[in-house]
Design a binder for these strands. Structure first.
Lengths: 207, 207
DNA sequence: CGCGAACCTGAGCAAGCGCTTAGGGGACGC
DNA sequence: GCGTCCCCTAAGCGCTTGCTCAGGTTCGCG
């Protein structure tokens, strides 16, 4: 369907999902969950989008919730990788923070279908699965906080409330998945650049 | 249940919902929708929380979707009122923007149960109802954009992309409803003050 | 050709869904 | 006492849900 989804520039989207039929089902589930939400999506709808019968789904996944967990896990791994890569780069804190925001926002805009499921369907996970995902989110928070803390230490940034500002930065980026529209006038890169600028203003020294 | 919900300082929460039984049902629906989401909530659950039989719901509301629409409509009216009141006040653009963000964020934190339903269950509405709500959101956007535009005109603000920054400010505030936790360490007022400061930095002149 | 493994389907089950209907029971005027 | 109105419940209807299971098709390999 969506060519922007299929031909992702920086990586093959779901290459880690190995039986091809399982991948087709997972991609169909991402689309359906993003459109209607997890609870409003039926297993018949997922199977139908993948061109299979409802029973085929249960050959590759034990339950509908396992499908959601696989999607959420892969998405969170990817998001965490983006942030930690940006945090580990060389350069000033400002350069690294701008890079992290640019990459994180770009991902949320470009792959907003996936990101919507990843960010807004957490409470549909089982307790064990949700605990696993929450731990990944804690690490994402730590990566951003590390950049901001170092900027404060070197005097590049003026941030009275580091945990609060970290939360606000992540919140701002994540919410891109909710409002971004591929038919809109802004490209993912433009939104990333705008947001990187706004975040640098949030942490920069007062005039 | 939650005393913070029941005893709202600035207004009686659902006083506009007039038959008392209808109000009890609506409050129960807000709690249930916020906890599990609209589609995962059953009419039996709503009626049970209100201490009634499932059939009682249909004396006061035609469908489950009508309940969601009433909640969404009242919440959006309240949010719009907050923003327009702040925009119409006297003072500098910076003062008015800070006031708008403080009030808007405070509402999203203090009444995060309601706000979660209002902000994250739009696609469960019927087409007509959603169109009505989208119009209210357009007006909220216009109120914030007006403040920022005036700040740019008077030279108080330096904002290269007014529509984009307006979107980011609203997005930042709305997402408070998603992560705010009443058991957490921050009060709604503290979050409002933090966010007002961050937003002023976003629009302020470069150092 | 025979055989086993991998994959998928048609049919359907038990449970739960939104919503309806027939009727009960208390408060009120007369 | 009696009828009327309003608010509510018990029971359940028709349908959809997540999921199962027996069996069929396709394939590589000897």
């Amino acid at each position: 369907m969506s060519t922007a989804e299929e031909t992702d520039g920086e990586n093959t989207p779901w290459s880690e999902v190995t039986p091809e039929a399982a991948r087709r089902l997972l991609v169909a589930a991402v689309e359906a969950f993003a459109e209607r939400g997890y609870h409003a999506t039926t297993t018949r709808d997922i199977a139908g989008r993948a061109g299979m019968s409802p029973a085929a789904l249960y050959i590759h996944y034990k339950t509908k919730e396992e499908l959601l967990h696989r999607i959420s896990r892969i998405g969170h791994d990817r998001a965490l990788l983006l942030l930690e890569t940006a945090a580990d780069r060389d350069g000033t804190a400002a350069e690294r923070l701008a890079g992290a925001v640019q990459a994180f926002v770009r991902w949320h805009a470009e792959r907003h279908t996936t990101a919507r499921v990843v960010q807004y369907e957490l409470e549909a996970l089982s307790d064990e699965h949700r605990a696993e995902i929450v731990e990944l989110r804690r690490k994402s928070d730590a990566a951003v906080r590390r950049i901001i803390s170092e900027g404060v230490r070197t005097g590049e940034f003026d941030v009275p409330d580091v945990p609060g500002t970290t939360l606000a930065v992540l919140s701002l980026c994540i919410d891109v998945a909710r409002w971004f529209n591929a038919q809109g006038s802004r490209t993912p890169d433009e939104v990333g650049t705008l947001y990187a600028d706004l975040v640098l203003r949030m942490v920069g020294p007062r005039k």
